[in-house]
């Protein structure tokens, strides 16, 4: 038992260490990406600051709008980073040509996914944290009423679902070597559209509001805004926590099963090879 635990932790750590080595080696790109993300987050949040000027109204609660947009920007940054790092794990290796070596190693797929997920969480938290620090220098934040504990619970629950969706999307490059990554980006873009990242879901057309109900990001964003903006206590956040928990329980095993099926299909049809 102890030996198995040691083996599993070494194998899982292999993915974490490898990815951080890659981050270190591609530091220039990482820096560019960080600057891009900061500028993007600031640009979006300044819309809140300028809303009074844009509408000519004195009644706009600029402070509320800024925090509303900041929550959207930061939460989306974290969730999309999680999604990208997991959904592209196969594509990276296919591009580098190492996919056969990784899949040939005696590593259970859940260990592989867990290692990649741990890296994605740490990376996402560092990136989002750095963006949040810079944003705090630009905008005044009033979190005196915020329920931080509740918001962390919601983010963690939402993260589980996003890991599941990321695993589902990571299968695509196995099935479609040429177009799989583009398909994953489409999933990410759709989630951005329907989940109320920068606006309330209620402004969407009716049919899109219905679709929004199956996106975990919708619950994460609404729940976090209630916790952080309105200070809603954790016991009143059940309407967001329970659906997220349910989605996580359903999506994660589905993702794992689909990945296994996708890997088997790729091995049957010879699609693991770089040339496809």
């Amino acid at each position: 038992m102890l030996e198995t635990l040691k083996l599993v932790s070494r194998q899982g750590y292999a993915f974490v260490a490898r990815n951080f080595h890659l981050v270190k080696r591609y530091w220039g790109w990482e820096l560019v990406w960080l600057i891009y993300c900061i500028v993007n987050a600031l640009s979006i949040t300044f819309i809140g600051v300028g809303m009074g000027t844009l509408t000519g109204s004195q009644d706009v609660d600029t402070g509320y709008l800024v925090v509303y947009l900041m929550i959207g920007t930061l939460v989306w940054q974290f969730l999309s980073s999680l999604f990208e790092n997991i959904s592209q794990m196969i594509q990276w290796e296919r591009w580098e040509g190492t996919i056969e070596y990784t899949l040939m190693a005696p590593v259970r797929r859940y260990v592989h996914m867990a290692g990649q997920t741990v890296f994605a969480i740490i990376y996402g938290l560092i990136l989002t944290g750095l963006i949040a620090i810079v944003m705090a220098l630009f905008f005044e934040l009033d979190l005196s009423r915020a329920n931080i504990f509740g918001s962390v619970i919601i983010l963690a629950m939402g993260g589980v679902s996003f890991v599941g969706i990321g695993i589902v999307a990571s299968v695509l490059p196995l099935l479609y070597p040429e177009r799989g990554t583009q398909m994953a980006y489409i999933i990410q873009a759709l989630l951005l559209l329907i989940s109320g990242v920068y606006y309330p879901v209620e402004v969407l057309p009716g049919w899109l509001q219905t679709v929004a109900k199956i996106s975990p990001a919708t619950y994460v964003l609404e729940g976090m805004r209630r916790a952080l903006l309105e200070g809603t206590p954790t016991y009143e956040l059940g309407g967001y926590i329970w659906p997220l928990l349910g989605m996580g329980i359903v999506v994660l095993p589905i993702g794992m099963s689909l990945f296994r099926a996708g890997e088997r299909y790729a091995r049957r049809t010879g699609r693991l090879k770089r040339s496809g």
């Binding site: 750590y13 260490a17 080696r25 190492t98 190693a105 770089r274």
Partner: peptide
């Protein structure tokens, strides 16, 4: 088992040591 193929498939930006550490950890 292990395998050596005709194409040396590695993470090209990583060093030999980083690539070998990754491979070795996968095998425990």
């Amino acid at each position: 088992i292990n395998r050596v193929s005709v194409e040396a498939s590695f993470f090209k930006k990583l060093s030999p040591m980083e690539n070998l550490l990754y491979g070795a950890r996968l095998y425990g």
